[in-house]
Amino acid sequence: MEILSRLPVKSIVRFGCVSKLWSTLTRHQSFINLFASRSSSGQPRLLVTFSTCYKKYGISFPQHQNPDGSYPPFYSFQIKTFSALPHPSEHPSQDCECYLGYDPLEGKHKVLCIVDKEYSEELQVLTLGAQESWRVITKGIPMHFPTGGLGRCFNGILYYEARLLGDDKNIIMSFDVRSESLVR
């Protein structure tokens, strides 16, 4: 595991195809944690995903230059399996805006979803990888409506653009992924 954790992601993905044992090893939580701790000390990368013709793809771009001015390589890959999340409300036809956040202290990804109810907005959270269902967030929620922009998560805080009820100005909402609370 120590040797594999020092390899680039593309090589690790390839090694996962060697055998069931290697596939299991590279997907084991302790290996993922070890790899994440090593790669988090490196420079940040931008991950872009998109779909075409019923196939899903990902591209990982470096966000820095090498000392000689060149850029490190970018990696592209096809996403073979893709898990669909359960719909956050009991009525799948309701509109909602969803954002992905990550808590680096607990190592958990969470999805924040703002469901458009008839006269109000309802916030729901789902922890990925857990055997949990959507949880409704009720504490300290100002009445707001997401503007449909992209959310960004930095150091466990998810930021997204919204508009408060009765106000025509856009604001940045902040959602603490760990405590599952909103701050303005």
Score class of each variant (00 low, 15 high):
Trp22Cys: 05
Ser23Phe: 09
Ser23Lys: 08
Ser23Glu: 03
Leu25Tyr: 01
Thr26Cys: 12
Ser30Cys: 09
Leu34Asp: 01
Phe35Tyr: 15
Phe35Gln: 06
Ala36Lys: 10
Ser41Met: 14
Ser41Gly: 11
Ser41Ala: 15
Gly42Pro: 13
Gly42Asp: 15
Pro44Met: 03
Pro44Glu: 03
Arg45Glu: 12
Arg45Ile: 05
Leu46Gly: 04
Leu46Ala: 07
Val48Trp: 08
Thr49Ile: 05
Phe50Ile: 00
Phe50Cys: 01
Cys53Arg: 13
Tyr54Ser: 14
Lys56Val: 11
Lys56Gln: 06
Lys56Gly: 02
Ile59Ala: 06
Ser60Cys: 14
Gln65Arg: 15
Gln65Cys: 12
Asn66Phe: 08
Pro67Cys: 09
Asp68His: 04
Gly69Asn: 04
Ser70His: 10
Ser70Ile: 01
Ser70Ala: 11
Ser70Tyr: 06
Tyr71Gly: 07
Phe74Leu: 04
Ser76Lys: 12
Phe77Asp: 08
Gln78Leu: 06
Ile79Gln: 02
Lys80Trp: 01
Lys80Pro: 00
Thr81Val: 11
Phe82Ala: 15
Ala84Leu: 07
His87Tyr: 02
His91Ala: 11
Pro92Gly: 03
Pro92Asn: 07
Ser93Tyr: 12
Asp95Trp: 10
Cys96Phe: 15
Glu97Ser: 13
Cys98Ile: 14
Tyr99Asp: 09
Tyr99Ala: 04
Tyr99Cys: 02
Tyr102Pro: 10
Gly107Asn: 03
Lys108Leu: 10
Lys108Cys: 06
His109Glu: 09
Val111Asn: 14
Leu112Ile: 13
Ile114Ser: 12
Tyr119Met: 11
Ser120Gln: 05
Ser120His: 03
Glu122Asp: 13
Glu122Arg: 02
Glu122Ala: 12
Leu123Trp: 06
Leu126Pro: 04
Leu128Met: 00
Gly129His: 01
Gln131Pro: 04
Glu132Met: 04
Ser133Lys: 01
Ser133His: 00
Ser133Trp: 00
Trp134Cys: 02
Arg135Leu: 10
Arg135Thr: 13
Val136Gln: 08
Ile137Gly: 05
Ile137His: 03
Lys139Val: 14
Met143Cys: 13
His144Ala: 07
Phe145Asn: 13
Phe145Gly: 10
Pro146Leu: 15
Pro146Ile: 12
Thr147Cys: 14
Gly148Thr: 14
Arg152Trp: 05
Phe154Pro: 00
Asn155Lys: 04
Asn155His: 10
Asn155Ala: 08
Leu158Ser: 07
Ala162Ser: 12
Leu164Met: 01
Leu165Gly: 06
